[in-house]
Design a protein around this nucleic acid. Sequence first.
DNA 1: GATGAATGAGATTTCATTCAT
DNA 2: TATGAATGAAATCTCATTCAT
Lengths: 225, 225, 225, 225
Amino acid sequence: MTMTTGDGVAVEGIPSLADTSILREPPSTARGVRTRAALVAAARAVFERDGYLEARLSDVAAEAKCSTGSFYTYFASKEEVLHAVLDLAQSELLHPGMPRLGDDEASPAAVIEASNRAYFEAYKRNAKLMNILDQVAAIDPKFRELRRRRSRAFCDRNARSLAQLQERGLADPELNPHQAARALSGMVGRMAYYTFVLGEENSLDDLVRHATRLWVNAVRIGSAG
Amino acid sequence: MTMTTGDGVAVEGIPSLADTSILREPPSTARGVRTRAALVAAARAVFERDGYLEARLSDVAAEAKCSTGSFYTYFASKEEVLHAVLDLAQSELLHPGMPRLGDDEASPAAVIEASNRAYFEAYKRNAKLMNILDQVAAIDPKFRELRRRRSRAFCDRNARSLAQLQERGLADPELNPHQAARALSGMVGRMAYYTFVLGEENSLDDLVRHATRLWVNAVRIGSAG
Amino acid sequence: MTMTTGDGVAVEGIPSLADTSILREPPSTARGVRTRAALVAAARAVFERDGYLEARLSDVAAEAKCSTGSFYTYFASKEEVLHAVLDLAQSELLHPGMPRLGDDEASPAAVIEASNRAYFEAYKRNAKLMNILDQVAAIDPKFRELRRRRSRAFCDRNARSLAQLQERGLADPELNPHQAARALSGMVGRMAYYTFVLGEENSLDDLVRHATRLWVNAVRIGSAG
Amino acid sequence: MTMTTGDGVAVEGIPSLADTSILREPPSTARGVRTRAALVAAARAVFERDGYLEARLSDVAAEAKCSTGSFYTYFASKEEVLHAVLDLAQSELLHPGMPRLGDDEASPAAVIEASNRAYFEAYKRNAKLMNILDQVAAIDPKFRELRRRRSRAFCDRNARSLAQLQERGLADPELNPHQAARALSGMVGRMAYYTFVLGEENSLDDLVRHATRLWVNAVRIGSAG
DNA sequence: GATGAATGAGATTTCATTCAT
DNA sequence: TATGAATGAAATCTCATTCAT
């Protein structure tokens, strides 16, 4: 059993964010690869420092130690470099290790806990970027939709797990699995937001413990009867 | 018992949003009052139509059928009208009626349900404005802080209710009341967001039913033992 | 003998500055007189505080405790109220007492000294207003011309005095009386400016002593031969 | 012996006016250098034509045949171009040649005369710009201070010359060298102002002759005893 | 590929002046 | 007269994007 959470960081097997169309060709020379990478890293840094809206492309270029003209060799717009930043962040997030527990090896609660922990850790590492994502999602429906698609993938998986538990009489049968999955993912996402973006002080362990217990309680795992 | 939810609409007894000191003096003539009101209404309409960032002050003035100069008679900036818009919306939201159940008249679950219903209804009526609030909260720490202060008021109340239930052995004693209250408020807020901002289709009744059931389950009301 | 100096404060018998045309009629009621006076005083205060250019008419009205509308009952423009301010200041300056020495009662040097002292004292009392006058003179040719006309009156008088001295063999015959008078008036005006506007520290006595000695030396009073 | 005069044109060895720190970087290409130079020239022309306050940046850009955007590539504000204009004018003024007479080659009077002539000639060539400088000095304390610093350099030099003459018994010992130097510089500056800004008609020769004679007389050069 | 100068549309803001009450 | 709201023209400044070298 796998159960994932939240707004859609810490993913696996999710298609690239940048479905969006007409990308510049990938650079063909080693120098080009380096410049592009420098620009993506610079963009992330500048976005996190100044916010997406405030960030000036000229600052991104300066941070990457190249000219503004060069920026357009690799990206068609600010939006596009943000896509690249998010893509890169995503691939970084994959490695740290989503729990890969076999379905029968672990109790549902243990899976949920591991999942939540992974999520919070990833969120913590990328809190500023998550805030950037919030910014663009709040502004641009394209990014809102993108985020929604990504969340859906998790929620579907979680919903399936929940449905299985219900079938086995191990979870509250009154709940619509999709509704519940979405609601609880939202809950965990919000907990992370309060802590790592708004800066409320919670220990990671406490966060994980509460997220897990509330989740387990909410779907009545084990006490479904 | 009272239990409120979410990101901070549907409030009562909450201080005005507009802490921002140096406000223009309120108009002293009836005509002035009318113009100001027209500008606030126009600002809300334009913000909701175009988004906060895209909204041009000249459009707000045009919508209010007055000159851009008149705008500055009443507001110093776009930010300041937004404060006025939020203040007005808040006072509208107060009336629809937060449940005022006497502590012993209703079961905890019934209170939570009424609370959630009121919240969702208010959110639905103000969905576009909530999205505007998201936009500015994502961008401007001042508004982020403002929203946080407002949420805190609810969460504190909910946390107190929960603590009382725990003391009477009617709720999961393992939960920190504040953590739980915040998490569950976040959950309900997210459910509203998914439905009314992102546009996922859920009936209001279903929304209320799930929010309530998940909440009740999560804190183990009634089955705490 | 009379000898006056400078850029044109401390005058006597000089026609009003406000030759400029279409003035509003003087107020006919006692209340009107009071309001007008309040506005003139307020204008001077605001001009001195904020500078002529920065001064807002709304601030002037506020300072005078009346509405902006009322301002236009008495003055057609900012420029016009400045004229009124200057007129009033001039009439104040007349009283403090320009030296009225009979031509033969005092030595030329004594007259010059008294004259210089009166000038510096007047300048000191009105330093901020003098700066305002500088501002508008630098900007508006009308005020430049006005100031020039006023200076000319002094210079002519001084030039006549000088010519008389020359005729009596008591001053440098090489000097053109007008050139010399203008130059020396300018010198004294500049000394006042350095001290009271730029803020260089000089005692009034020292200022008077130097102005007088330089002037007397320059035209070779007494040592003309 | 060197003796210089006035409000601070015609200088040598004076530090650049543009102390104002955060300047845009100088252009790195020839094209950039050309554009910047065109803008400075255009600014001077427009300032002189319309006055500093009336001058619109868009006119400056138009005059330089570039877009307003380009203006901001090189200057952050109107104030900053003005600094550039003044800097450039200053460097032009340096070359025409301040008299460089060896101390013993010329009589004090001859040095003063050459000095005055150079000053008047420079002033005449730059009369309109001097008026601009008056405008900003009257308005903006920063420029007032800047001008004062520049004048001080001359005055100090003149004061030193005068002190030497006094020591050698060749000038009026009653005068404070600094007071006298400042006063006489002011006198010459004013003579130039009357003539070249206000437009009073004086021949250059007459101007030089009077300035020199009044100065020489005033400090009693030669007849100090 | 890289550079960096050039572009220019357009929103915000100010405030002297007018005008309806 | 007094009031104070309404007006609106106009100028600054920004920065993503293009383009000539």
